[in-house]
Amino acid sequence: EQLDARIARAYWFFLFHQVPDLPETLVAGNERAWLRHFFSDWCYDPNAISGDAFEAYVRAYEAPGAVRGAMADYRANAEDVAQDKVDADIPISVPTLALWGAEFYAVGKMFDMEAVWNGMASDVRTHAIERAGHLPHEEQPERVNALLLDFLEGWKG
């Protein structure tokens, strides 16, 4: 709703990945370079995802239809936003945990995420994960897991 030049520069990939068929064509056979670009750009530590972990991502995205499936998520944005607007004035009422990488330029550095989530949910816990970019579960798995386990404590059936 507030797209300007600063946000467009940070979210260029979001717009590009919505173009029908072009990302798939350009990524095909180049999954390794595509993933390396984003993992290096999005992580606090550009080498956070490497070795076997990186190779697992490469194999997954080399699978037939995988990149198209990833692009479908971006292409669903218009419908997602339309659905969000239907009940935007009704706060999420279930317990909500919001985690984000404090160091990611397009989220933690660009927006007041605590205020964003407090405006969307009535029972929310928010945590900026330090020393993490867009993928805090990869960069700080112990911290993320500890927060998840704490949040889920008492939910046993």
Score class of each variant (00 low, 15 high):
K156N: 13
D80G: 14
A88H: 13
E62P: 04
L26C: 01
A70D: 01
F54N: 11
A60L: 02
P46G: 14
L148V: 14
R125P: 11
A132M: 10
K85L: 15
E130R: 07
F151G: 08
P95Y: 06
A115L: 09
A63E: 02
D150M: 09
A28D: 05
K85C: 13
D4R: 03
L152P: 03
R131P: 00
I90M: 11
A98I: 07
V86Q: 14
L3A: 08
E103G: 08
K156T: 15
E138H: 07
A78G: 03
F38K: 06
D4E: 08
S93A: 15
I49L: 02
G51S: 01
D45H: 00
K109M: 03
H17M: 08
R131L: 07
I7H: 03
S50R: 15
M120N: 03
L148Y: 14
P46D: 05
A121S: 12
S93D: 12
L152H: 13
F14V: 12
L97S: 04
D21W: 15
F54E: 05
R143N: 09
N77Y: 10
P141W: 05
A72V: 00
F13C: 05
P20Q: 01
W12A: 15
L97D: 06
G29I: 04
E138G: 07
Y74D: 03
F38Y: 06
